[in-house]
Every structure is written in structure tokens, then in C-alpha cells.
Design a protein around this nucleic acid. Structure first.
Lengths: 157, 157
DNA sequence: GACTAACGTTCGTGCGGCCAACGATAATCG
DNA sequence: CGATTATCGTTGGCCGCACGAACGTTAGTC
């Protein structure tokens, strides 16, 4: 009784950029999630480890700003990572409000592992696109993202 | 005290398609959410109304397939919409397992309203891109999405 | 009539993003 | 100095979206 296109989304949606964006992001998120949970990780873990690896030890607040993780979510994230000795949390001797978070050797290994997973996943995600098209998509997305990041972040004051 | 790039995400992320995708999607989602909550709607409502408008009355299961809304989430969605007389839920006389969901005139008006909001939002979302670039982005996203939709949906059997 | 499948419903899970509040500590200004 | 303001970490909660498990009801099928 149902037509072959019983599962086709309304036409209104299929050309709506915001919808295309959130839908493809959902697929991307699913792929990443699957790849990450296979090694007992999730997005926040990767972001945090990446920020630590790139910028070195930092306070939770600074890490939150850099990785885009809300301060209130940093706590659990660091708990999870420190339980597995992927990061270390120590009080900052120079500022007793702060903790200093440091990535451990195990943390770096995990980060490399996640990097590998991600590389595979990108290829999977962008399978239908040529290398040039992948670059183009990346470039366009980066510009859109940059634009909106500036607006929200440049609360310069 | 903090460098100007204190809030810059790790380099590893800034060229990662899956990350660019989910981040821009987050911005898109935020913009859409704001526009929708202003008229007491959310994404599911739009999707459902759009599916109804395009395909006509249908069962909840069929609507779920078309709009990509999980069957278990359809219940609440239809509850919310029917409370405001935007859709009607009636038992299907020809199949007592089913309900027939119908969009009401008020529902169509709401849908038009949401369409307008969305048009504005797309422009906002893609502000940094030229018309050609917007088309290109749309095209690329549609291809990626189509690819992954096929994989997950064509479990036909 | 037994079995299978579809439908609608309820409940619960997970991730990601976010807000409110609070105590502790630092920095600043009178 | 003391009072005020700001930052930091923490807890607890909420929302949106996607998804799974389970259950009773009803339709088709053998």
C-alpha cells in the first residue's frame, strides 16, 4: 500500500540547508559515536585530549573555552578521563581556585587511536564525494562555522 | 592575560569534516530552535506538518517513516500538535490498529509561518556564502545525506 | 485457530548543549 | 585594611533529538 517513496522526506526539507546540515551531522555523529564507543570514548573525550595535546596543561575553564565544552560538563568529562589515567587533575599551586589538567602518555596513545578511527570515519562519511568535493565541502563548512563562531565568541568584553 | 586565541579549537578539529559538520549543525539547530520556540514549535513539529501537507493524512507509522521521526517520539509530537488543533488524530475505520493523522487549517497556517521563519534563518545561517556557494554546499550535503540515507533505509524487507 | 507482523504507547538511555546556584578563592577598588 | 567583583570548580537540572525494549491490540497468513 505504501509507495516506494514511503520513506522519502517532504520535498520542503530536501533542499533546506539547515535540515541537510543537521541530518548529515546526525549521520556523522552516529558514525563517530560508533567508532568512539568501540574504544570507550565519546566526543568530549576527544576534544579534551586534543586541546590538551595541542596547548599543553591548562585549567578546566581554559580547556572548556578551547574545546567548546561547557564548564559544567568538563567536570564529568575529566572525571571519566582521569579514572582511566588518560589525564591528571591536580590543584594549581599558583591559583588555588584552579585545577591543572595534564594529558598522560596513556592519554596520548588514546588520542592517536581516536585520530585513526576518525580518519577512517571521514572517509566513510564523505564516501560519495571526490577529493576535490570533500575539500570544497570542508572549506564551505569552515567558513560558515567561522562566521558563527565569531558572532558568539566575540563578546569582546 | 589569555592569548587572543584562547578560545580557538584545536587545529586537529578545524579541518575535520565530521566536526565541521556537527558544529555548523549545532549553530543551525540553535538558529532554528530560536526561531521555532518563538512560535512554540520545534523541529519535530515542522517535519510532521510538512509530511502531512505534502502526502496528506497518514498513519503515525507512515508519518514516522516519511519524516524520520521515531515511532516512539511520534506519540508526544502528535499529542503536542493535536492539543493546539494543528493536527487531528482519529482512529482509522479500515484498520483499527491505526490512527489517521490529518493536518488542520490552523496546522497549515502554522506550517506557512514556520516556512517563513526558516527562509529567514537559512539566509542568516549561510550569510558568509555567495548564492553559488550556498547552492554548492546544498548540493554536496544532499549527496552525502542521500548516500547515508540509502544505506540505512534500504533494509527493504 | 495459531502464528506472525504491524501499530500505537509508555518508559528509559545516551549524547550534546546549556542554565542556575553555590562555596571557595583571587583580583580590584575604595 | 575591608568590601566588592570576578573567576573557578562542582552539583543538579532541563531540553532536543535519536533510539531501544517491552507490551497490548489488531490484521494478515498459513
Amino acid at each position: 500500500m505504501q509507495t516506494p517513496s514511503d520513506d522519502a522526506p517532504p520535498a520542503r526539507l530536501t533542499t533546506l540547508p539547515s535540515w541537510l546540515l543537521t541530518q548529515t551531522a546526525t549521520h556523522a555523529h552516529r558514525l563517530v559515536s560508533e567508532g568512539f564507543t568501540a574504544v570507550h570514548a565519546r566526543g568530549y573525550h576527544y576534544r579534551l585530549l586534543a586541546a590538551l595535546d595541542e596547548y599543553g596543561p591548562a585549567s578546566q575553564a581554559a580547556l572548556g573555552r578551547r574545546s567548546g565544552i561547557h564548564l559544567s560538563d568538563m567536570v564529568a568529562t575529566i572525571n571519566e578521563l582521569s579514572e582511566r589515567q588518560l589525564v591528571e587533575r591536580e590543584p594549581d599551586p599558583t591559583d588555588r581556585r584552579r585545577n591543572v589538567i595534564t594529558i598522560t602518555p596513556d592519554g596520548r596513545r588514546q588520542l592517536r587511536l581516536l585520530d585513526k578511527q576518525l580518519t577512517r570515519i571521514q572517509d566513510n562519511l564523505l564516501a560519495p564525494l571526490s577529493p576535490e568535493e570533500r575539500d570544497e565541502l570542508t572549506r564551505l563548512l569552515a567558513r560558515v562555522l567561522d562566521h558563527h563562531d565569531r558572532r558568539s565568541t566575540r563578546s569582546d568584553g
